[in-house]
Design a protein around this nucleic acid. Sequence first.
DNA 1: TTGTGCACAACTTCCTTCTT
DNA 2: AAGAAGGAAGTTGTGCACAA
Length: 334
Amino acid sequence: MNFATFDLNLLRVLDALFREENATRAGDRLRLSQPAVSAALNRLRRHLDDPLFVRQKNRMVPTAKALALKDTVREALVGLEEAMTAIAGFDPASARRCFRIYGSDYFADMLMPALSATLRRAAPGIVLQLIDNSSGDMQDQLADRAADLALEPATAVPAWISCEPAFHSSFVVVAAADNPAIRRLGLQEGEEIPLDAFCAMPQTFASANGQLAGIVDKALAVVGRRREASLTLPQFHSVAVAVAEGTLVATLPRAIATKYAASLGLRIYAAPVAVPPADLRLYWHVRHDADMGHQWLRARVKAILAGYDEGPGSARQGTHSAAAGNANGRPAPT
DNA sequence: TTGTGCACAACTTCCTTCTT
DNA sequence: AAGAAGGAAGTTGTGCACAA
């Protein structure tokens, strides 16, 4: 083949085909039509004298010759993108970009409205998307560029993921204003719920993957006690609504408990055990380290979340070193 | 039978090259 | 420098193959 006449745009088509193994979806990714991808694939085939992708049922399977190019093409494109974004500079006022943030519904309430307001003023051409953390694994989302930034509890990550602390949040217990168990105890808001009463109360908590034991159960186990888990829900907001509408209580991060208490009429109490504070962190692919636009976004996110930071020693009694996260990047159930 | 997905045909648009 | 011609690559529309 003659590299001097080779259209380097064809490498983007090749990369999209590796990612999607489907000409229609590769076209969507590249904002081209399926016939345009098909024609580009034919040009690649002529240049490289190989079918490159052969149809197998409903997917386009790469040939051995195509696979031999896969990593080289990917690395070349990523290297070019990194180099170009690093030198491009970033002017928020004129920037036209889309940033996708991966995280739980906690951030839909606690981050996105404020971040959106900041961007409307300073960077009106930027579009924000919150990707729900139930949509897939954090590492996969960052690797596949489905997410630009992730907000998750502290967890071990490989070297290709950069990480910065965002904030620490303690936990408090919320209950409906007319919760009968709380009323019988005669507790005032802010007071500690007695351990025996807490363990006997029907409880709900956020669990993205349906785990029936959360960090509260771990804290109770330390003192040899158990609680009654009645309901798990995938989102913090649903937990707060369930508490507001019934006799359940829930242990929630303090900031979001305070917000929901105001909007749903909940009361806040201290937990009877030391629950380790949530250590929330920002994660992103190292390819964005030098990206000035990404740096700008990270600074805005950190500035907003710093308002919720209670420091690493924010547990009610003492602290635990265990982080409130797990290996797959999902938030640990509370 | 229907839905999905690739490839082809016809046409349009845009870029490059050639000519004046 | 400007217009004409030709080619490359895009689009829409359609056909064919295949799986459910």
